[in-house]
Design a protein around this nucleic acid. Structure first.
Length: 551
RNA sequence: GGGCCGGUAGCUCAGUCUGGCAGAGCGACGGACUCUUAAUCCGUCGGUCGCGUGUUCAAAUCGCGCCCGGCCCGCCA
């Protein structure tokens, strides 16, 4: 048995007492210090209770960075993720999502049918969308797809499947054979642990609910007897059916505080990151139970902080969530991975409104890695360690169009025009390889999605195919004709901008009103991007005809 | 009520381990340009490092007390 690591008493210790520029190296140090057998195992896990949101990747990406840090040292590492899908459904989520990530309210599915499954394991509940084998499989599949999009290779393991194939058999028998010891240790963390308490829940053969009232244990026959009684969950009561029966050990589960350390033993886990909610409840009891009931060595722990969304706590039940899928519509996977590479203990806000700041920060981080900008030593080292783990491939020739400029380019749908303007503005070097140009322009589409989603100051759409319905007074019409003439002579954007001003003055039109006329013609709006330079970048014939109100 | 984590410029964040000039980007403002507007370039502005206190030649950094936010201290996971 390996000796106790200081982090067992304090799961924050791993991240605090270290001088690594990149936190994952500190965790990797702690993992290596235990001399684990290879492949080393890094685990995460959650219950598939509903739509996976932007907080869930913490559970996998934190471990991913540690895995990569260990691989840098030549270690073989496997990442596993348990879908804790034998947990019971405790309450109905307000919103669900189909496999395409489209969110639907409870009202759009058969909520009554779903509600009759309260208290049953997720894997025993029919998929409300009818596409997967169960409710649990459905939401696990959504998370699996998110991880695929993020490009992290993880071995998903169904907890239910582990029970069914007997992976838990030995540990369940051990716990049930040493119930006094189990109760004694658990009682240090939970009240109401009396002689009647049996650390095992059975699935009622009549109604399918997980019941906690175990009346007898027969380790010769590998069965337990139970009475299906009411279950209290967070103030609500799920009624039991009263059935009394006897069922196999594989047809049940360990309570969480035993199940977690049992997973460590079964999967031979060397490291596991977890949210701060586990740091003071489950972790200490998990260590105690692992050491003193199961004879299992706890993994190296790491606590990560939760982050907020637009300044407020994420809330699945309250609907204040954003999915990985939605986020990847507006930024590259590398940027999202970058977000999760930052110090785990800082409380951070994830803001869609200001996502441009995150992207800018990533671009700068990338420049630091390639030595294209000055940076303090510590930041340089961090970039050196973290950057290769954040991107799909380290390629110095990559091209990044600044995010807000990409949003400006997104005002036109024309891909050729987007590229032409980007090149003219110097955001795409002449010698940029084709793949780099393609990827750079992909950001334009994402920035466009962002502008549209937030309805921000970049959310303008060039009305190219059809002229908006407009009418102007005579002076304005004459001024527009003159401006058309000027554009037809061939001037650059700066000159056009000046001429807009001049033309307005000549016709005694308020400058602001004349700009507004231009915005109406091109954007069907009263405001928009800086008009002269924007028109200067469009093709001249189109601009001239539009100014003449000829389509 | 007790414990844990966080709090640094308007915003997003480095820096805190190991005390040594308060930092970056974005932003705002002014200019480059007869110009209300994105981008580009130049310049300027920007701080009670949550508050107080102790230690020290020296504190964002170490100690103590407090404030604010999140989480844990029932059950569940």
């Amino acid at each position: 048995m390996s000796q106790e690591h200081p982090s067992e008493a304090d799961p924050y210790a791993v991240l605090k007492n270290n001088d690594s520029a990149f936190w994952a190296d500190a965790v990797a140090d702690a993992v290596e210090a235990r001399n684990p057998e290879e492949p080393m195992v890094i685990k995460g896990g959650v219950s598939p209770s509903g739509i996976p949101h932007i907080g869930h990747p913490n559970e996998i990406l934190r471990g991913y960075f540690v895995a990569e840090a260990l691989r840098d040292r030549g270690r073989e590492v496997r990442q596993v993720f348990t879908s804790d899908d034998r947990d019971r459904l405790r309450k109905l989520p307000r919103r669900l999502a189909n496999l395409d990530g489209e969110i639907v309210g409870l009202g759009e599915i058969d909520a009554g049918a779903l509600g009759r499954n309260l208290g049953r394991p997720y894997t025993d509940i029919p998929d409300p969308f009818g596409c997967c084998d169960s409710y649990g499989d459905h939401f696990t599949e959504l998370l699996r797809r998110d991880m695929e999009r993020l490009g992290v290779e993880v071995d998903f393991r169904s907890n239910t499947a582990l029970y069914e194939v007997g992976a838990f058999d030995d540990v369940i028998r051990h716990v049930l054979a040493n119930q006094d010891r189990a109760r004694e240790v658990l009682a240090r963390y939970q009240d109401q642990i009396d002689e009647e308490y049996v650390p095992f829940f059975a699935i009622c053969e009549d109604c399918g609910q997980l019941t906690e009232t175990i009346t007898a244990v027969d380790l010769e026959a590998d069965t337990v007897s139970y009475r299906c009684t009411d279950v209290e969950t967070g103030g609500d009561t799920i009624e039991g059916c009263g059935h009394e029966g006897t069922t196999a050990l594989r047809n049940g589960k360990l309570p969480w505080r035993f199940e977690w350390p049992a997973q460590w033993g079964i999967l031979d886990v060397d490291h596991e990151p977890f949210g701060k909610d586990h740091a003071e409840g489950s972790w200490p009891s998990g260590v105690d139970i692992a050491r003193n009931v199961l004879d299992v060595v706890p993994p190296v722990p790491m606590v990560y902080e939760w982050f907020t969304l637009e300044g407020e706590a994420l809330s699945s039940s309250g609907g204040h969530v954003v999915t990985v899928d939605e986020v990847l519509d507006i930024l590259e996977p590398a940027v999202l991975r970058y977000f999760f590479s930052k110090a785990p203990l800082k409380q951070r806000d994830f803001s869609i409104e200001r996502i441009d700041q995150l992207v800018d920060e990533f671009d700068e981080f990338e420049r630091v890695y390639f030595g294209e900008t000055d940076a303090p030593e510590r930041e340089r080292v961090r970039a050196e360690r973290a950057y290769p783990k954040v991107v799909e491939a380290v390629r110095e020739k990559r091209v990044r169009i600044p995010y807000t400029f990409a949003a400006v380019l997104g005002m036109t749908d024309d891909p050729d025009l987007r590229e032409e303007i980007a090149r003219r503005e110097g955001h795409v070097p002449d010698d940029a390889p084709e793949w780099a140009v393609e990827e750079a322009l992909a950001r334009v589409e994402r920035a466009r999605n962002w502008a549209r989603r937030t309805g921000n100051e970049f959310d303008y759409e060039l009305k190219r195919s059809a002229m908006p319905d407009v009418s102007f007074d005579e002076a304005t019409e004459q001024a527009l004709d003159e401006l058309a003439e000027f554009v037809a002579e061939g001037h650059d954007g700066e000159a056009i901008q000046g001429e807009i001003y001049e033309t307005a003055k000549r016709h005694d039109i308020e400058v602001a009103d004349f700009f507004a006329a231009g915005y109406q013609l091109f954007f069907d709006d009263d405001e928009g991007p800086k008009l002269g330079p924007f028109l200067g970048k469009l093709d001249q014939q189109f601009v001239v005809e539009r100014l003449r109100r000829k389509g």
